[in-house]
């Protein structure tokens, strides 16, 4: 009986975190700054996942056991793997990407201060490597973003403080 009621809820993804889900659920992450939100989905099978990537490359890790969801190069393959086990077809995956801003206009400083563009670059490179086309992106700039992906429509809602909501 309960199968008749299909309630949709919003799956929340934290920092350096990754989740996958099916329609009618939506999937969301809040307050992306230099971090990049990577949505990968199978449009027909109505499954999608979101990774909130904090850093570009796991070579930066100075830990023996590190959280693989934190880095672009390690998070994206795991996202694809989890999508496959949820029924997504790996050769038909598509991606949408948002984030990678520079929140403070540092005049100088270490590479760490330019991490936003490096995150975007690393994400795009990894997606290209896995032959996943990027259908839409909203990256760079200097504003924080909250993103929410509607699996039903494959639209990514991007909200910023000054520009309000846009759909890509």
């Amino acid at each position: 009986m309960s199968k008749l009621i299909s309630s949709s809820h919003v799956v929340k993804v934290g920092i350096a975190d990754l989740k996958v889900t099916k329609a009618p659920n939506k999937i969301r992450t809040s307050g992306l700054g230099s971090c990049v939100g990577v949505v990968i989905y199978d449009e027909r099978k109505k499954v999608a996942g979101l990774a909130h990537v904090l850093l570009p490359d796991s070579k930066l890790a100075r830990q023996n056991k590190f959280n693989h969801y934190k880095y672009a190069d390690t998070a994206i393959p795991l996202l694809v793997e989890q999508l496959s086990s949820l029924g997504a077809r790996s050769n038909l995956l598509k991606a949408k990407v948002a984030g990678g801003a520079q929140m403070f206009q540092f005049s100088s400083g270490s590479d760490m201060m330019r991490i936003g563009p490096r995150n975007v670059e690393s994400v795009l490179e990894k997606l290209k490597h896995l032959s996943i086309p990027v259908l839409a992106s909203d990256t760079g700039g200097n504003a924080g973003r909250t993103i929410e992906f509607d699996i039903q429509t494959s639209l990514l809602k991007v909200r910023t403080v000054n520009k309000g909501e846009t759909f890509i």
Binding site: L32, S34, L55, M112, G144, T146, V161
Partner: peptide, 27 residues
């Protein structure tokens, strides 16, 4: 201290900047 850098935005976006150094060694 460096010069002050100002941002008026979402807390998450702003605070991750301060976590970048530590995030390479810890969670």
């Amino acid at each position: 201290p460096s010069v002050p850098y100002l941002s008026i935005d979402m807390a998450g976006a702003i605070l991750t900047v301060g976590l970048l150094e530590v995030s390479q060694v810890a969670d």
